[in-house]
């Protein structure tokens, strides 16, 4: 107890409280949490990847089509990071262009997903065909929901920026939305490999 009393303040660290650090800490912790969320769904899919009953299995995947939509989502990460870059430099005009581009690419991906789902249903794979179908639709569906939320957030950013109400210190800023968007992208990188490429 004596030694503890003798601690001097040489290990003073920066405990200052810049708002960005607080928010990014929360966002990264949230993304760590999301890793478990998608981990549980990916595992469910892996468990049921061959449990196809009388319905179709992974053979109905259209790899060229899915590769194209994967590429679209990857490129949306590029436009997102460029938007972030512009906003960091204070160039909101340029930044908005990249934000809108990101939102459009995200919407394109979603449209592709809807098309893909429709095709699969026509070919006889629904959520109640087999555990394979249930887990495939749940995993890709929840990912699509994340993309949709991302598009909503991007649109709000554009809206706030246009109205002149955007500031890096406001509750929601480009950097945070970018982190979320890139995370949704890396989840798709995993899904593309694990669900599509490894199963054909």
């Amino acid at each position: 107890m004596v030694s503890e009393g003798a601690v001097v303040d040489h290990d003073f660290e920066d405990t200052g409280n810049p708002i960005h650090r607080v928010r990014k800490t929360a966002m990264w912790a949230f993304l760590g949490s999301e890793a478990f969320f998608f981990g549980a769904m990916i595992s469910t899919f892996l468990l049921y990847r061959n449990t196809i009953g009388d319905g179709p299995g992974a053979d109905i995947f259209n790899i060229p089509f899915t590769s194209a939509s994967s590429f679209v989502l990857l490129m949306s990460s590029l436009t997102m990071v460029l938007a972030d870059n512009s906003f960091q430099k204070g160039d909101q005009r340029q930044g908005r262009v990249w934000l809108i581009g990101t939102a459009l690419l995200g919407t394109t991906f979603l449209a592709g997903q809807i098309f893909e789902f429709t095709e699969f249903v026509h070919e006889g794979l629904t959520i109640s065909t087999s555990p394979f179908g249930s887990s495939f639709y749940m995993l890709t569906g929840f990912h699509g929901l994340h993309v949709a939320v991302g598009v909503l957030l991007l649109s709000m950013l554009v809206f706030f920026s246009l109205r002149g109400r955007y500031s890096p210190d406001s509750g929601m800023n480009v950097e945070l939305v970018a982190l979320y968007w890139h995370f949704v992208d890396i989840v798709w990188i995993v899904i593309f490999t694990v669900v599509y490429l490894l199963q054909i």
């Binding site: 969320f37 249930s134 887990s135």
Partner: peptide, 27 residues
């Protein structure tokens, strides 16, 4: 998040005809 996924699966099994826990379909 892990029980979150489990609870969604339960809800889907009960209401939308998914087969996550349905032993008769090898769930």
């Amino acid at each position: 998040p892990v029980i979150g996924v489990g609870l969604w699966q339960m809800l889907f099994d009960r209401n939308f005809g998914t087969l996550f826990y349905a032993a008769q379909a090898q769930g």
